[in-house]
Design a protein around this nucleic acid. Structure first.
Lengths: 340, 340
DNA sequence: CTAGGGTAATGAAAGGATTCAATGCCGAGA
DNA sequence: TCTCGGCATTGAATCCTTTCATTACCCTAG
């Protein structure tokens, strides 16, 4: 059985020859077994087993045109926020017997472009994309060629794409308003590149909250840009702050929880638990372990699973369905990290 | 440009017609631009742009046979251990200009089977699989049909597959020996199904360490089986232990860090920080945030990124390469959760 | 005994890109 | 003027499956 062969996959016509029937009949056994006579069917099935034949999905797809795979491009596969979203997508797709191909663009527009191209060339039925930059042209082009596209975690505005997102300005405002209420008037925000819309929007929201409280927005929220959005750059940035002439601020707003974890790590490294407890920290995403940290993290929660689920829903909607913008509201979860 | 069309992708012959050349010429422009006369090439390129033609990768693949996609099946995409491994895979594949399709089997052999089938039908060049059960038959079959297969996080033994794994018995032994040294002679292990090899092996290792220390292995390591390997079931199991007649043990060994996080959460729920600090906990995987928890977690570290990288390496090795078993050694990282 | 109806099986066409043997053409050399 | 070499282009064959109009066959009713 596993003797030689190997060189080449058996094809439907090999099976047909072995079973002594026409290729069409084999195809029928595969796809509409009920219309072929039991005896013939048995013979064909035996031949299939004998040759350990696996239908070539590529050829099938070429002929049939359609397929049930959805491409998902996220910014960073290691960020629990995205895997939670992906999970929501997967759960929804499973209901429709579709499958998911996941890729991670690493915030890199070139990689994003490459993956989009790859997915499109492979004829996916649709794409769910967390765009790495503000440029939606490629996505619009892809959509104009008949691939369904839904933006994830970014509002599409009037661009003509559907989207599922969270109001990031509101999230930034929630975080800042909370810190102001706790008495902090000078906050450092550890942020990512403004090419990442979420980062820009959260800053805008934070400054808006500062204005609303009668503070000078620029002075109240000082931005520090990170190289990346993970815990390592959180550590790095915090150490740099500590070493700077101004020293550490009384409060730090982090663009996501991983960064906040890094901040906590750096503070502990520098000044132990005392220092760690003296700086107020607010994160973003409310990842699973935010509540289990040494100092449980105040964070802005987004309905991750639901976002993914809903996005997949939009993608699977009938062709005729309208372009739709779904915007979820974020929610602040207060924990010890922002207590006095 | 984005006017109507939509109905159908342009094909190479549409382009050929528009440019007034033969299909073969268009194909040449696409794949070997240097051999076509500049004037012709320009004309064809204009036609391609005009029709916003995207080559159909499916047709190409059917003809050419080969492809540069690798399928990866992990147990749970939300587990940082697996995403870190996936990251290592991705990094290695990127060097070879290959791409990764990720799927999550959810510990469910049926789902695993489905994904394997899907990937194989799509003609992936290879598969990296974290098997959900002990049954490798399907994988062997797939391999016998010419798809390269590498087992991830599971030793293939003499089955004829390549594999990259960590010595889980050694890991279990490390954890238990450490707890014994700290004076714990009755440990509860929160474990997953023995169908998951890692779970079974870690228990075996723990009991081996108990024996080596002169303890009765069965009594020293009491096993409690979990429904799933996430923090929620850690919470659930811990609450059940607390409510049981025997009460909580002095030490808990968790089959992974997520479970350990759940244990900590449950302990805090039940008895606050005091209770939390009175129970020794050892986790497994040393995920990024293990060191940042309320009580930093002692954990068994595995070289995740390197495992993924190495596995991809094996997969990309020349056809002729030998079957190879790579076994990494785990390492114990001691933190506060297992202090007295 | 024939016509007609229904079931089973057939096999050619289609789908889009690549490949390669064959053709066309042009200019240079005889 | 004729021939030959080399470059550019052509278009049929191929990859494997699905689809569907057609054929083959058997049985029953007239």
């Amino acid at each position: 059985m596993t003797t030689e062969a190997r060189r080449k996959r058996a094809s439907i016509s090999d099976v047909a020859r072995l079973a002594g029937v026409a290729v069409g009949t084999v195809s029928n056994v595969l796809n509409r077994p009920d219309i072929v006579a039991p005896a013939t069917r048995a013979r064909v099935e035996a031949a299939i087993k004998e040759m350990s034949f696996v239908p070539n999905a590529v050829a099938r797809q070429l002929r049939v045109g359609t397929i049930t795979t959805v491409g998902v491009v996220v910014l960073d596969i290691r960020n629990p926020f995205f895997t939670e979203v992906a999970r929501g997508v997967e759960d929804r797709l499973a209901l429709a017997d579709h499958t998911l191909m996941l890729a991670s663009s690493d915030d890199d527009p070139a990689r994003e472009r490459k993956y989009l191209q790859l997915f499109e060339q492979h004829g996916v039925v649709g794409l769910l994309v967390v765009p790495s930059g503000p440029d939606l042209d490629q996505l619009l082009e892809v959509q104009s060629r008949g691939v369904r596209v839904v933006l994830l975690d970014a509002p599409a505005g009037s661009s003509g794409l559907s989207s599922v997102s969270v109001d990031d300005e509101a999230g930034g405002a929630l975080a800042m308003a909370h810190l102001i209420e706790r008495g902090h008037t000078q906050v450092v925000m550890l942020n990512g590149s403004h090419d990442i819309r979420q980062c820009a929007a959260r800053l805008v929201g934070a400054r808006r909250a500062a204005s609303a409280a009668g503070l000078d927005p620029e002075a109240a929220v000082r931005e520090v840009q990170l190289r990346a959005l993970d815990s390592a750059s959180g550590v790095e940035a915090t150490l740099a702050l500590a070493d700077a002439p101004d020293g550490l601020p009384s409060a730090i707003f982090c663009v996501n929880d991983l960064v906040a974890v890094g901040v906590q790590r750096a503070l502990r490294l520098r000044g132990g638990t005392a220092l760690l407890e003296s700086v107020a920290i607010v994160g973003y995403d409310d990842i699973d372990i935010a509540s289990e940290l040494a100092v449980p993290l105040t964070s802005v929660r987004q309905p991750t699973h639901e976002m993914g689920y809903r996005a997949a829903d939009l993608l699977l909607a009938p062709e005729s369905a309208e372009i739709e913008q779904v915007v979820f509201a974020p929610e602040l979860v207060v924990r010890a990290s922002s207590a006095r």
